[in-house]
Design a protein around this nucleic acid. Structure first.
Lengths: 206, 206
DNA sequence: GTCTATAAGCGGATAGAC
DNA sequence: GTCTATCCGCTTATAGAC
């Protein structure tokens, strides 16, 4: 049996990836030491490097494993839905990701902030077409008068910015408000406010 | 004369801070090497360390020099203005900062993303009171029926998120659209869209 | 698969001449 | 103020026993 394909090997790989995500998202690639990760998993450093030959390999594996979280909610926008329902569902889903997987969000944010060199192929080849499909739908709604006449790409950016902000800037939000998305009522207020402003902003007045 | 207070010393300090900002914002604190910075300034590494005794000192100096950019536009919201004018001016000013000083924005974003340990005192003591004053003004407008009844703190976050996004996620935006705020017409479209959605979202319908 | 011990080299900081 | 040369700690990665 090949390396890492045993049951115990697979379990260890997962544990390593979990710990690595947590540390990489907090300290960045260079700021994280491999023995920190090893210690977090309760494993010796050489043993860790038995599973992932280099720190780079481990980092790439962490990124890859979290990629679908970046792409998933986009693909879930129901094609037949009306604008209000579709936008409500998408914004709610994105905010929910910010609550459930803030470390994933921060890992991607750090990567993009630093130039997205590792992510560029994925963003271009995988995210690009998905975004285009959604933007096309926005554009059709605009043509049909079901959304106000704004640039659909910027609507996409605004949704990403407002929802991911609560994961990426959680430290600042905690300092200023003492709250986080983990507080149920803070989450509800956030969702209601973001939804209200954006829907109010893009749906035509009756 | 004390060190660094001569004309040439002051000029060198500025050149170092400029290069350091550029590199720290791109690679983070740990990802940046001091000899990289020295080379960018055309100076030997020991000479660089003559001006800033440690890498930490240099980093702190860079952060401090850029702090007013974080706080400045907030303080400029004219107290007497009506909501529409005040929000328009503030959003436009923030977007202009994202265009003119994207590296500053990314430096702060990286700091906050990684837990804001260095920035926490500043955010709490300097940003906090400024934000509170602005949020109070939002709240009064809401009470007077000049803004719709949303949580004013979240309005603040939404403005920060949407405007800073164009600096912090510039790499992703470039990959998806091929554009940046440096393109005059892209900047105009961005400003118009953000303004339209947010103003439309928070101003009461006539 | 897991460990102890160690190699290898990077990178921040210093010594000391000019 | 600026340089060359160098130190030394820290961190990744490997060797090799179990």
């Amino acid at each position: 049996m090949k390396r890492n394909q045993t049951r115990i090997g697979e379990a260890n790989r997962e544990k390593i990836l979990d710990a690595a995500l947590s540390l990489f998202s907090r300290y960045g690639f260079r700021g994280t030491r491999t023995d920190q990760i090893a210690e977090a998993v309760g494993m010796s450093k050489p043993n860790l490097l038995y599973y992932f030959r280099t720190k780079q390999d481990l980092y790439a594996a962490v990124l890859e494993r979290t990629l679908f979280m970046w792409l998933d909610p986009l693909a879930e926008i129901a094609p037949g839905a009306d604008p209000k329902t579709a936008l409500t569902d998408y914004i709610t889903a994105k905010l929910d990701y910010s609550r459930r997987y803030p470390e994933h969000s921060r890992l991607f944010a750090t990567e993009i902030l630093q130039g997205a060199t590792l992510l560029e192929p994925t963003l271009r080849n995988d995210l690009g077409p998905l975004v285009e499909a959604v933007v096309d739908r926005f554009r059709r709604w605009i043509d049909e008068g079901r959304l106000v006449a704004i640039d659909p790409m910027h609507l996409m950016f605004m949704i990403w910015a407002t929802t991911q902000h609560y994961a990426d800037f959680a430290a600042q939000i905690a300092i200023l408000t003492g709250r986080s998305l983990d507080d149920e009522d803070f989450f509800a207020t956030t969702r209601d406010t973001v939804l209200r402003v954006i829907l109010n902003g893009v749906l035509p007045k009756e």
